[in-house]
Design a protein around this nucleic acid. Structure first.
Lengths: 200, 200, 200, 200
DNA sequence: CATGAATGAGCTTTCATTCAT
DNA sequence: AATGAATGAAAGCTCATTCAT
């Protein structure tokens, strides 16, 4: 069905790259392990040398993506004092928007395929998912506590802000005119309004 | 032969109800037409009497859901003058939030399974999808034109507002303490801030 | 691999017949469900319409064979008084030998493939297996109690007698010169000597 | 990567030990060469260094087991004159019963997996199998010729005796109360009755 | 309207085996 | 003497769909 069976280097990474493509195009259940192997330039059974199952492959991808997102968030927040909620939220928005734009495929897989993780893996990764919310909630809640953010319902503000930033991965087209930097600026503004940050 | 085989009245509606459940639980590709028939208390062949294919069944559901959402939006906006952007946006938020809460399953199916519509059906329904954005965009753009909304980037404001409202269907739990009315209030506020509506 | 794809009547029975052949020729794990379906003149998936799994198919066969053997034993013993141990044992030998000769394939499958029944089915069928020993043991033990049989170790006598009769299915060739009736006579004599029956 | 990976000294013997376990537990076709290698604490390729194929591994085991059984029989019979049929048969029963008890796994593999030897190996080993019958037949036939054994059908007596002794490997439990010596005594008696040996 | 029986294509997975190192 | 990585074939099973009744 697809002609692009080009090996891309060592097994494990070729498989991950191919799986990202195919899961993104067709979704977990719509993707066939044959497509993935073919797209990676490997035989079907070579794939099973690296991953014991399709489910494991999905879990590995999602974990990898999520950890990379966390790494970027941590890096962005590392040097900003806990008391500067506005700067911290701005940094988080930037990290998130940039990740959604640069790693669009990874973002969409993580967002859409969580639900297809089965019990065993699901629980281990459930913690990661919780953390993604916590990163945002900690900053928003602290800002509200300090009076920097004046939104009356911090939990909903956080959900709205996250949803807005995450949605970028769904509609962004890299061949358009909007740069990541443009989006960072626009969404920072939007998120600041959502939490009702005091003017700078 | 099947666990949840609950007959639910006439064929067509029983099938729709069962399909909604199964598509929601497992996604389009993860759902089997056997599960759906079983859940509807019907034989496989009975299902094929009503729908020529699995794909058609999905398209019928999505169309039905979308038209119902439009119906609610139209009803909500019917009596509000085109010049009162704030009232129109508030009405749209209310219609959307209520729909996401009351028709949570329908909302999630429509949001997640669009991508699994095949070419033929897809194009016919593509118009519906566009319209969902247009309803929002028309109001936001008009508000900006009139100076009622002061957001600098109306397209992004619209995307953010829609994403925030749509996301409700993903996290809302009907057994919690939040009523639909609570959410209408909260999300109206949030959306007004996103578009930077002038204070009332 | 085999040309004899001749339908033999309704699905269920054609499958049983084919499965008997293939399990007998290749053993449970060596048999492929494709071979069985082909030999039955059916498609692979038709087989799954009748049996949910290969394992279930094996269990169904073994149960059927075992029940038929029991039926024959019960019939053979029905009219013989409990006190006439010699006549009862002779009848059991006859029923067993005739079954091993007439239903050679069924006998061999049951003997060899018990071990491949998995936990769930295994336990249900375990009772049947126990009963096969009990039928013999009841007669031998009663004969010993009455003094009709004088063997010092009834349990081992029973095992030896059963093993000797059961083994017939392994070596008997229907195109040879030995009739079932010949074997009944010979093995009755052997078994009587094993239990050390008093001369008639 | 594997549960029971216990290194057991040099390659060849470790493989034989592991193969015996796995073939015994699952049968030839149910056993995987990966299981065997893992159980032996070796890599898959190490196994192929010692044995060119799974089939060869089975043949090697069966040959080894059979030759060891013959060695024991020959040893047991070495000093008994050909004219003393009773003593020779008793010695053969002893050798067989002891082997079935002490080498239970080996006995069962040889008995069950003959049928899975393919043409090439099968023919070479067919001679061994014939010899196993011949050892018994020679003694029984000679005893009948000499008038020591009075059974009317020596071939069936031999089959019954062999079947009874061989079956021990199927039911014997080493943790029970029966010793090998007990069984030797009991089965000698049984076999003597089967061949109708004249009283000592 | 509805069913029971069947199908062909496809699925994920496992197998025995190979080969460069 | 041994390994890690790979393969092609085949396994058991499920799928959406069809058709005679």
């Amino acid at each position: 069905m697809d002609g692009g069976a080009i090996p891309r280097g060592g097994g494990r990474e070729a498989i991950a790259a191919a799986a990202r493509e195919v899961f993104h195009e067709r979704g977990y259940h719509g993707a066939s392990i044959r497509d993935i192997a073919g797209r990676a330039g490997l035989s079907l059974s070579a794939l099973y040398y690296w991953h014991p199952s399709k489910q494991d492959l999905l879990a590995a991808l999602i974990e990898e993506h999520t950890l990379e997102y966390f790494r970027r968030c941590d890096e962005a927040l590392a040097d900003i004092p806990l008391t500067d909620s506005t700067a911290r939220l701005a940094a988080l928005v930037r990290a998130t928007v940039v990740y959604r734009v640069e790693q669009q495929v990874e973002s969409n897989i993580s967002a859409r395929e969580w639900r297809n993780l089965e019990a065993g893996q699901g629980e281990r990764l459930e913690g990661l998912r919780t953390k993604a919310s916590t990163i945002w909630a900690d900053i928003v809640d602290e800002g509200v506590r300090l009076g920097t953010f004046r939104c009356p319902h911090p939990a909903d503000a956080r959900r709205a802000a996250q949803a807005a930033c995450n949605a970028i991965a769904q509609w962004y087209r890299p061949d358009g005119t909007l740069s990541a930097e443009d989006l960072v600026e626009r969404y920072t503004l939007i998120v600041m309004r959502i939490v009702d940050a005091e003017p700078a």
